[in-house]
Amino acid sequence: MRSIRTAAAVALIATLTACGGATSGAGEDKPSAGAKGTVNLAINPWVGYEANAAVIAHLLEKKMGYTVEKKELKEEIAWQGFETGEVDTIVENWGHPDLKKTYIEDKKVAVDVGPTGNQGVIGWYVPQWMADKYPDITDWKNLNKYADLFKTSESKGKGQFLAGDPSFVTNDEALVSNLKLNYTVVYSGSEAAIIKAAQQASAQKKPLLFYFYEPQWLFAKEKYVRVKLPEYKEGCDADLKKVACDYPDYVLDKIASKKFADGNSTAYQLVKNFTWTNDDQNLVSDYITNQGMSDEKAAEKWVNEHEATWKPWIPAGS
């Protein structure tokens, strides 16, 4: 009896070994990187990213004949998609040195495809009226003095610092504790929720201290003032738990999966060539958010009006 069982086990293992096992990328050979196929475009949850993606998708579909599959994914998860083949490219990446190390250097499933041309800024902001009324509020050293102004139902008796989507690049909790600020970080859950709160704070003159970033269309409509945090120095954010300095400036870039890059299709070349200014992006974001246009309509409008900008992105022979 035992010998039969042993034999069966050996046979099973032999079969499996002969098959060589399945790697994580197996079974994902969709014709993505091939000729005129499908491009899997990750969509990260803020409207600026959407603007980049909308324009790229529009060009790929309408001008170059690709099919674009848009995937609503948070940043981390989009990076995981490089490994599984779910994602071909991310078109606005904010830093993420840890992810770059994992996926580009260690796993070698992704490559850096160069800057988008946008300059990224992350910081702490207050509405203009607060800066007018309390001029010294824009220095972090004075924030504790005004903590009472920012109290809300969620802030546990301290001042509220309103953060965004948990997936965003943030050091806020570490900053609050390391700078010994009498504040509680409250997550609104999304960009839209921060924008809503910021608009309300401006319109109804309500106190608000919040996480925000550029490029961002809202700055074209209303004024917000950045609070000065201790100056950023190279490496001061190396240990995320001990950060006590401001956010660095970011050169936003594009990432593609290794497979997509190696295919070197015209779609990949378009992504590689894509580069525009903060104003360009804010314009499209504004179309999407405030003019009630769908992503497609907004992209179409921008593309129709800015041929000079996008013409050079289109690779020769496509």
């Binding site: 981390e76 840890d98 994992t102 948990p166 997936s167 997550y187 609104s188 929720a193």
Partner: peptide, 21 residues
């Protein structure tokens, strides 16, 4: 509710699959 500011464990879970660290 961790997705919309309820914080605590729900937020930890959301953050857990949105932030590597």
């Amino acid at each position: 509710g961790g997705l919309v500011g309820a914080g605590a464990l729900g937020y930890d879970v959301v953050a857990g699959f949105s932030q590597r660290e």
